[in-house]
Design a protein around this nucleic acid. Structure first.
Length: 508
DNA sequence: CTGGGGAAGGGGCCC
DNA sequence: AGGGCCCCTTCCCCA
């Protein structure tokens, strides 16, 4: 019995061992399996982590790149933006560009004005400024950086005074522009290189915009509302500058005119009238080319010039367009009157030059120069007198050889009745019976033509001539020949024509 | 010979 | 009466 128990226990023990081993094995197997799964999961997780990490790195890298790009985006945007502008409309085409940053701002804004200078004649390209605080601190206003080409200070600059800047920007004839006291900050940018260069000037404080156009070729600047735009650039003369009186007169007339009613002839033809308004194109230029201060200068100048002018007394409306003085290139200042204003074939400009030459060579003529007239004849009534020394040149220039014709017709101080003709022309000394006569006469010298035909823009110094001219448009021929059917617009023509019938010779 | 314009003279009107 | 202004006339030149 005991032995059986022993065997039984032994068997049980062996069974238990087997079972234990089996259990261990099972456990181990389970552990191994789980471990493998776990390891697999871990591996996968690690891979995912790695992938995510790489993603993250990529993202960071991308982000950092964007940050780098974002650290200097403005210039790029500006370049793109203004390249787009340059590709765009109007004058923003061509190769020569300069971008002018508005003064007083560190950054470009959409609403900021930008001046883009264009010139078709050069391939130089001006590239946008990369702004920096240093540069801004160095000087507000225009900052110009160019990718290539040498700096051309003409093209864009900030100026303290408009007048002071003009010689650089506007004209290649600096001596004609005299500096003026600093008044306001202007930003003037010249657009050059084209036939019609444009100068823009803006004040920082005003809305004033001055637009000039330069004439480089001198062609086609007549009979066109845009002619002044195409015409030569002239600045309103600052005191002390050399300017031609007809121009001053024009400005004076423009600014001194009242309601402009006086010269209405009562005619029914609206097309031809003693216009009381300037041509719109002329207005634009005439006004734009002047600052308020310039107007004051004009008025001051002209009030002196016309100190006794009867026209001012009545404030008569006289239409005056600018008579432009052309100064081309480096040529010396010459008196060259725009024929548009003086009429086709008007030769006063040449006459002025001729007379100027005669002044230099003919002492007798010099004796009768306006300057001498004023100095020597202070007691003589003149409707027009140089008010200051700088006008000397002006009046020297405007002396006209046509005065000789007047002399030939009985003109001259000594030819007329000194009692009746006590009003003397300051240019030619011819005497006239009344002030208005001499004023009208002096238009011969000054080129002033206040009366304009609205149909053809012909201009006349005398109202009667304009009225006579109107018949050209109306076809009116009030003077008929009694012996034939010929009709004439002028009485003198009829009279001349009748010699055909009478056999009278017009000349021997 | 005609057409167009420049320029001066004269006269009337108004203040 | 005188002066200023305006208009007309006239002569002349040029194309």
């Amino acid at each position: 019995m005991a032995a059986n128990c022993m065997v039984f226990h032994t068997q049980i023990a062996s069974i238990m061992e087997v079972l234990a081993n089996a259990a261990v094995a099972e456990i181990c197997k389970l552990v191994d399996d789980d471990y493998a799964v776990f390891r697999l999961e871990i591996t996968q997780s690690q891979k995912e982590n790695s992938a995510l990490r790489r993603k993250l790195q990529l993202l960071e890298l991308k982000l950092s790149r964007e940050r780098v790009l974002a650290s200097r985006p403005r210039s790029v945007k500006i370049l793109d933006r203004y390249r787009g502008m340059a590709r765009g409309e109007g004058h923003l085409t061509g190769g020569h560009r300069s971008f002018v940053k508005p003064a007083g701002h560190n950054t470009w804004r959409d609403d900021q004005p930008i001046t883009v200078d264009e010139g078709s004649g050069t391939s130089t390209q001006h590239v946008i400024v990369i702004e920096s605080a240093d540069a801004e601190a160095a000087g507000p206003g225009v900052k110009l950086e160019r990718s290539e080409g040498e700096e051309d200070p003409r093209h864009s600059r900030d100026t303290q005074t408009r007048v002071a800047a003009e010689p650089h920007v506007a004209t290649k004839d600096p001596p004609t522009i005299a500096p003026a006291p600093p008044r306001t900050r202007h930003r003037i940018t010249e657009v050059s290189g084209t036939q019609n260069a444009v100068l823009k000037s803006e004040t920082d404080t005003d809305t004033l915009t001055v637009t000039h156009r330069l004439l480089h070729t001198g062609s086609d600047h007549k009979s066109d509302p845009e002619r002044l735009g195409k015409g030569p650039l002239r600045y309103p003369p600052a005191p002390g500058t050399e300017y031609l009186p007809v121009f001053h007169q024009s400005q004076r007339m423009v600014h001194s005119r009242g309601d402009g009613d006086a010269l209405d002839t009562g005619g029914d033809d609206p097309s031809c009238s003693y216009s009381t308004e300037m041509d719109p194109g002329n207005i634009s230029l005439g006004l734009e080319t002047q600052t308020d201060l310039s107007r004051e200068d004009w008025n001051q100048y002209n009030s002196g010039l016309y100190s006794e002018g009867s026209l001012d007394k009545k404030g008569e409306g006289l239409v005056i367009d600018e008579v432009t003085v052309k100064v081309e290139g480096d040529a010396p200042l010459t008196w060259n009157v725009d024929k548009t204003h003086l009429g086709e074939g008007y030769s006063q400009g040449r006459d002025f030059l001729d007379y100027r030459e005669s002044l230099e060579t003919n002492p007798n003529v010099t004796t009768h120069s306006p300057l001498h007239t004023v100095r020597d004849r202070e007691s003589v009534s003149t409707s027009m007198g140089p008010s200051d020394s700088h006008n000397h040149v002006l009046f020297d220039q405007v002396l006209n050889s046509k005065g000789q014709r007047a002399k030939g017709r009985g003109g001259g101080a000594t030819s007329g009745n000194s009692k009746e003709k006590r009003f003397l022309c300051m240019f030619c000394n011819k005497g006239f019976s009344c002030l208005q006569k001499v004023e009208i006469h002096q238009r011969v010298h000054t080129g002033e033509k206040p009366y304009s035909c609205m149909q053809c823009h012909m201009r006349f110094a005398e109202a009667g001539n304009l009225k006579r001219h109107q018949r050209v448009h109306t076809g009116e021929k009030p003077f008929g020949c009694t012996q034939c059917h010929m009709r004439f617009a002028q009485a003198g023509h009829l009279k001349r024509h009748q010699r055909v019938h009478t056999g009278e010779k017009s000349y021997s």
